[in-house]
Design a protein around this nucleic acid. Sequence first.
RNA 1: GGCCCCGUGGUCAAGCGGUUAAGACAUCGCCCUUUCACGGCGGAGACAUGGGUUCGAUUCCCGUCGGGGUCACCA
Length: 551
Amino acid sequence: MDYKDLAELIFPNAKDISYYEEKYPERDLKEGAIVTRFAPSPTGFVHIGGLYQSLIARKLATQTDGVFFLRVEDTDQKREVENGISGIVQALNDFGIIPDEGMISETEGKGNYGPYRQSQRKEIYQSYAKYLISQGKAYPCFCTPEEGEEIRAKQEAAKIRPGYYGVWAKCRNITVEEAIEKIKNGESYIIRFKSPGREDRKIKHHDVIKGNVDFPENDQDIVIIKADGLPTYHFAHAIDDHLMRTTHVIRGDEWLSSIPLHLQLFHELGFKAPKYAHIAPIMKNDNGNKRKLSKRKDSEAAVSYYDEEGIPEEAVKEYLLNIANSNFENWRRANKEKSIDEFELQLNKMSVSGALFDMVKLLDVGKTVISMFTAQEVYDRALVWAKKYDKELEEMLQDKEYALKVFGIERGNKKPRKDISKWAEVKENIEYMYDDKFLSKEQEYPYQVINEKEDIDKILTLYLEKYYDENDDKQTWFDKIKELAGEMGYAKEVKEFKANPEMYKAHVGDVSTVLRVALTGRTNTPDMYEIMQVLGKDSIEKRFEKAKNNN
RNA sequence: GGCCCCGUGGUCAAGCGGUUAAGACAUCGCCCUUUCACGGCGGAGACAUGGGUUCGAUUCCCGUCGGGGUCACCA
C-alpha cells in the first residue's frame, strides 16, 4: 500500500488535476498584463482598506490591459453573513470599481475562471489535496482540536516555538497502513501539508511594495483541508490564484509573514508563484498610538460611511490615490480636468508603512472635487444624497430652477467657490437662501461695527427706497452702496477710513455687513450681489422688514 | 516572547553620500476695489537616538528606543 492508495481512499471521486489545468489555461494577454483580484470574505462589511486595495488592483489591471476579478473567500461558514456578497458588489459599484470577472451578485458570477466563490470550489481543492497526498506531500492528521491545544500549551510552557512541526507533528510519520486503518475505523481527520522546510534556513523574497525581505523557511505542517472538507485560506489562495492565473497578488500586509508558507505551497504544488504586493494598512491615531482603522471603533472604516456623509466617491478615490502615490497630487494640480483614470499608478512608489487616515485632507479633496462640478451636477448629486438621507433637503430641492440658481452662485468661473466638502453640508450651506426657512425662523443678527438699531434701520430703509434697483449691474450696485455709506456719514472707501480712522464711525464695508446680516443672518456669505440677484426684490424687502422688527 | 517590517515638520510625503532638506493638508501673517471662500505672497515647523564607515552622513553598517504586523481546523 502506498500514498496513492491513501489518496484514493480519502478522495475517491476527485478528478485528476490535469482536468483543471486544462480547463483553466494560461490567459491570452499581452506582455506585461496584470491579472489581479480583490478577495474578501463575505462579512457584509467593506473596509476602506478593502476599497483601497480594489482601487489599486482595478487601476493596475486597466493600465496594463489585464484583468481584475472579484473572488469571494467564504470557506469559514461561521463568518457567513446574509447578503454579504451583494454588499461587496454594491460597494465596489458605488465607487465605480467594476471587476471584469467574478461574483456579480449573491449567487452569480461571470468569467471563464470560476466559480469565483470558494465554497463552490470544494472539489477543486480536494483534487489538489489528493494530488499532494499521493505525492507524500500531505497527510491525514488524526489529532483532535483538544490535542492541538495541549501541544500548544506544552510548547508555551517550555517557551519554545508553538505549532505543528518537527517532533510535534505527531501524525506526520504515521505509516500509510496505519492511516488507512484509522480512516476505515471511522476516525475523523483533517489534511495537513507536509512541509519540507527548515526553520534554520532563510528564504529571500522580493515584494513589489516592501522590497527585499528575508524570512526563515516555513516548517509548519499547516492544515490545508479542514474537518468540514473546505480548504484553509492558504491552500485556497495557492490553488485559486494559480488556476485563475493571477499574476499579482495585491493584499494587506498582514499577509506578509505568510509568504514563506505560500511560496512553499506554490512550489510543492508545482505552480509558478505570482508576484506579491503587500499594501500597508490605513491607520488611525488612537491616543498617541497608531492602529489599523477598526471596524468596531471607527465609523470611517466602513465604506458605507462615505455614502452616508455624502463625501463624493471621486473624493474618496482621489484621497486614496494620494496615499498610494504621493506624486498624484502634483499630477492632479497639473491636470485639473482629467479623469483619475488617466493617472498612472505605480506599485513600487507605494509607501511601505501605513498612513494615518486624515479626514481633514479628505474633506479638502472633497471641496475641490465639488467645486469643479457644475450647478446641475451639484444639484443632481445633492438630490440623490438627500433622497436617501435627508428629507428636508430633498424638499428644499424640489424647486429645481431656484436650487440651480443657488448652486450657481460663484460657480463655473476660474476661481470657483469651495465651500461644500460633502453633501451633508449642503442644507446648512444654502438654508438661508430659502424664504420659507429664513423668514419663519427666529434669527440672530450678528451686526458687527454698526450696532445702533436706529442706524441699522436707516441703512435698510434708505437702501431700498433710494438705492436698490434689481436691474443694476454689479459695478453700479457696488457704487450705490458706497454712496449710501457716504450719505450716512461713513467712509466710502476702506482705505480712506484706515488713513483717517478718527474722522469716521464706520466705512462702506461695515454698511455692507449690515445689509448682509439683515439679508442672511450671517457675516460670512458668498458674493452679496449674486445673492440679491437670486433672492429678488420681494424677498429682500421681506428680509429687511424682518430685520427691522427684530427687537 | 520568536520572526518580519518601518521610523524626514501636527498629517501625507519627495530626497537616498555633499541640497538654502521639495510639495500638499493643517496653522499663522499680509494682499486680493466690502465679509467669507477661492487665489497670491510670506512665516513658523522635520531627518527618533547612540556609536561607527567616510574628507563628508537624513542618506551606508551596528546597537538602543519607538511604532506596526504575525505566530488558528479565521480570513
